[in-house]
Design a protein around this nucleic acid. Structure first.
Lengths: 253, 253
DNA sequence: TCGTGTGAATCACTTCACAGCT
DNA sequence: AGCTGTGAAGTGATTCACACGA
């Protein structure tokens, strides 16, 4: 998912498709695992399986980066790790601020995979004066008043928003005003940002709703051609309110 | 993003495009906000703005659900809320289990928006015997030994995995074995599941890497046609390691 | 022989633009 | 007059299938 694709209309020479960019981290993770097991080379077939995609897609994706494989052999693991890392901009480190140190913000601060790949938590910021000075994940939480100073001093270009939805937009504006140009939004709100700023969102509730949609379809089909699983019986008890659900309180036009 | 689209090859009559399904929750959220403000009707233009999409897309999306608008007027807010809710399967409630009650699992358990939309946390499950019996978000954590019983008794069809990556696949298999057919995976691993099971993943690290990719591009363009923001100067200090980054330790072929 | 790299074909999604209804 | 609903056109992504090089 994403709200990305804000900036340029894909000008400047090497245009890697957005869908490909979104898969590069997947390949990188699979390659890193191979690298740790000292596997020297890998075929598109093997790597694709490890990354959970099909091999044609993977080869096409890599073709946008250049010809990094060897016909009849496969890809050199270490070399690919480097090329993809460079393409993704992971050979430099990215200071990141997390704004909103509630349950989720704290969980993210503690999340290990954060630091591993070139991302460094430069600061934790919260609006609550009570939080300021507290240690979370070994980092001292700072008050929002410091936001602009912190961003400017550390050259932060990526901000993570884990505030309640009500304040997310204004936090976003302060981040952008202070120089942040990429935002990862965990608050369930649509953020509006000026051109040139990328926003990606992560939304538990949306993901669950999408799953529920498909789940519902499955339940429908089950009724026709029954191949019910172990939990299906109990599920019917808890879920079924008739074939079409109840009529809503309000039901106009 | 998603790994969805596992089941049927879009057979059976009413095929709503996956991209549309992914936007329905956004519309629903915008509509719910309007509903709370007692706004009776809304035009595609207004609603699209609130949901952060363009109006043509929104109208096309709604056209897959049916003709729920009135030409010259717009859409009835309450009616649409109901129709979308029903389409998404939110008129029934979905018991959900969260497996892996670390920082993130606990944060999700505490997350309010969870319960709001038809999702109910039926159980929190952790492999650590120390965790069992503890209260998190007002719910008693249970040991993994209970997993199958819980899923079957509550008719759980949706599972959320917030374990460390190393155990995610085996947790996934137990969930599926016990009857779960939709999985939301927060562990940074590719899960493999049998046909008929949907997996969606949420991965902080991947999102950040995608942002970094675009961020890097921006930095490149900045150099050419300079329109640097406040934090750009400091960023250059902290990030630039030369125009092409350092040469990696290993650099084969 | 084997597996990459890639044009060509297909499929999915988006945007356009306007007919049709209120 | 205004706004929805939708064919048609356009764009982007995936898959196919095979030429090419090691």
């Amino acid at each position: 998912m994403a709200t990305g694709r804000t900036h340029r209309p894909a000008t400047r020479s090497r245009g890697i498709p957005e869908a490909t960019v979104a898969r590069l981290p997947l390949y990188l993770r699979a390659l890193t695992a191979l690298s740790e097991r000292s596997v020297p080379t890998v075929s598109s077939e093997e790597l694709a399986a490890a990354a959970g995609v099909n091999s044609a897609k993977l080869r096409k994706d890599f073709s946008y980066l250049g010809s990094y494989g060897t016909r009849g052999v496969g890809y050199d693991v270490e070399y690919l790790v480097y090329q993809i890392s460079r393409e993704l901009g992971l050979t430099q480190d990215w200071p990141v601020v997390i704004v909103g140190i509630g349950n989720l913000g704290a969980a993210l601060a503690n999340y290990g995979g954060f630091a591993s790949r070139g991302f460094r938590v430069a600061a934790l910021i919260d609006a609550d004066p009570e939080m300021a000075g507290k240690q979370v994940a070994g980092i001292t939480v700072q008050h929002s008043d410091e936001m602009e100073r912190i961003i400017s001093e550390h050259g932060v270009s990526i901000g993570v928003i884990t505030t309640p939805p009500g304040v997310a937009q204004q936090v976003c504006e302060r981040l952008v005003g202070a120089g942040v140009t990429s935002i990862l939004n965990f608050a369930p709100t649509v953020l509006s940002v000026p051109d040139g700023v990328d926003v990606r969102k992560v939304d538990l509730s949306i993901e669950l709703q999408i799953l529920a949609f498909h789940e519902q379809r499955k339940a429908g089909e089950e009724a026709a051609s029954d191949g019910a699983g172990p939990a299906a019986a109990a599920r019917k008890q808890s879920a079924d309110k008739g074939p079409d659900g109840d009529v809503p309180a309000v039901m106009p036009a």
